[in-house]
Nucleic acid binder design. Structure first.
Lengths: 123, 123
DNA sequence: ATAGTATATGTAAAATAACGCATATATACA
DNA sequence: TGTATATATGCGTTATTTTACATATACTAT
């Protein structure tokens, strides 16, 4: 029960919901700098919020050189699956901008991999 | 998006999750005093948390004399429906005690209606 | 080792939220 | 009108969360 409350708490901030939407829609691993540019938020904030999502088991990470790639957690608990469906059913508005920026950013990948840091806000 | 974040925030406190579980499992309107006794929490806390759930549209209320009856919101938006399913899939632990107390409490109804106030903690 | 890049985190300040108590509101009934 | 009951709320205190800045860590390449 407390675990569940913490999962909902993790989804109770817009920036974290935007991160989840991004990962759900992108359907692929994203590195931190790509998420930073897609959301147009500071690096340290994105990093912190990613950590919160990770702590409740919603996302997982993997290192690839200096880059760290985040993706939806593969723990396919029934609850998590329902939750993803719920998030998918959120009516769109602002996060569309995120996807536009993400797509632009993903074009900068070389051979499918991120090769540059974030361009936007400092941190 | 912000609306959704607020809905998740409403579900990020254990007491509010317990209220939601109670209403989902009971499958009927419950008056505030019945919820107070089922959760064994103070009247003012239950009242406050019910108001938070109501403000985000998860529950709705209806007056019946001095009693106010709460139920799941009938707004059957797809998102809300998914959310209910998600909450239903939460593994049980503590809220089972809530249901035991609720059932005991519901037996005190007369002709299917609550006729007494709460017995438990003050407020 | 050194420099450069990507990501994470300690800390303090600001903003939010929860709790307890007392009290207010609304209704019922005499 | 006055009392009793059910529910809601204003306010102060405490606890939690978010943010911003600076800096630390981890890795790569020279």
């Amino acid at each position: 029960m407390e675990v569940t409350a913490n999962i909902f708490k993790a989804l109770s901030e817009i920036i974290r919901l935007r991160i989840m939407r991004l990962l759900i829609k992108a359907k692929k691993e994203l590195c931190v700098c790509e998420i930073v540019d897609a959301l147009d938020e500071t690096q340290y904030n994105v990093s912190r919020h990613l950590n919160i999502l990770k702590n409740v088991g919603l996302v997982s990470d993997r290192r690839a050189g200096t880059w760290i790639l985040y993706s939806l957690s593969s723990k396919n608990v029934r609850f998590n699956q329902k939750l993803i469906e719920t998030i998918e059913s959120i009516p769109s508005d602002k996060e569309d901008d995120d996807m536009v920026r993400l797509r632009k950013r993903l074009k900068m990948r070389v051979k499918g991999r991120c090769v540059i840091g974030y361009k936007g806000k400092g941190g």
